[in-house]
């Protein structure tokens, strides 16, 4: 049952991504409607899948690689839909759906087996810490996508080529706003995720020594990068190219932390 749900939503994401890309080239509004509909259905099915999996496993499905990556993809889809509802950024869906699709691909390749929760992870803090962190990361992922689009569009404008991408990418202002919006939501969530993680660690380890593993080190580095970006952006007035570059670099750190988390597992 849950497997089928996952497959169908995966197929819908594939359809939406394909339609978004076709739309990107053809600029035919019918394709865009198909893409939007497909994406919406996919995200809905994905939500049901995660709920079903929750009941099947008996705990929040954010522990195995498959679960985590799929939850990450779901968060990005939901974050995208959440602010799509507020304002539109031209052709942003094309890039966001590609990211979701790639994550779903990774999730589908990973083992779908339900592993019983190790005793040290059995805590009410698991869903809180993990979901807050992942949703925060999803916003940062969108910020990075926006940053990439900004760099592309800025290059078109600076090199004065006005080719294929120029007409298809949104305005710099819209992308900068998107960056601003996503980071100012993503960063507090990330911080909150780290605070809950700290509380949880104190609970488990009690008075023991602090375990400095690579995952914790990298998440600290990531946090510092975003904190630096926030400072530069809101205090020093950084924007545009530099802010976009920084967003992308910082998101690479997020991905690295993620990598260490998935490989090393939670201790």
């Amino acid at each position: 049952m849950s497997y089928l749900l996952f497959q169908i939503s995966f197929a819908c994401y594939l359809l939406a991504t394909a339609a978004y890309f076709y739309f990107f080239f053809k600029q035919d509004s019918l394709l865009r409607r198909i893409a939007r509909g497909g994406f919406f259905v996919a995200a809905g099915l994905h939500t049901i899948y995660i709920l079903v999996r929750y009941f099947e496993a008996g705990h929040t499905p954010i522990t195995s690689i498959h679960e985590t990556v799929s939850f990450f993809a779901w968060s990005i889809a939901c974050c995208y839909l959440s602010f799509r509802w507020r304002y539109t950024v031209k052709n942003f869906g094309t890039f966001a759906s590609l990211m979701v699709f790639i994550l779903m691909l990774i999730a589908s390749l990973a083992s779908r087996e339900i592993v019983p929760l190790p005793p040290n992870l059995q805590s009410w803090l698991l869903p809180v810490h993990a979901s807050i962190s992942i949703v925060g990361d999803a916003f940062l992922a969108l910020a990075a996508i926006g940053g990439g689009m900004y760099l592309l569009q800025e290059r078109e404008l600076k090199q004065k080529r006005f080719g294929f991408l120029f007409s298809r990418l949104p305005s710099l202002e819209a992308l900068d706003k998107l960056n601003n919006h996503c980071i100012s939501i993503g960063f507090p969530l990330m911080t909150l995720g780290m605070v809950t993680g700290y509380i949880w660690a104190r609970q488990i380890w009690g008075g023991q020594d602090w375990h400095w593993d690579s995952k914790i080190v990298w998440s600290m580095i990531t946090w510092l990068l975003y904190a630096g970006l926030m400072h530069q952006r809101f205090v020093m007035g950084w924007r545009g190219r530099r802010a976009s570059l920084m967003t992308i670099v910082a998101f690479c750190a997020v991905l690295l932390t993620f990598w260490f988390l998935l490989v090393g597992g939670h201790k």
């Binding site: 404008l157 949104p170 710099l172 202002e173």
Partner: peptide
């Protein structure tokens, strides 16, 4: 046209 791509509005 260029102004729109830079400032949006």
């Amino acid at each position: 046209e260029l102004g729109r791509k830079i400032f949006g509005d």
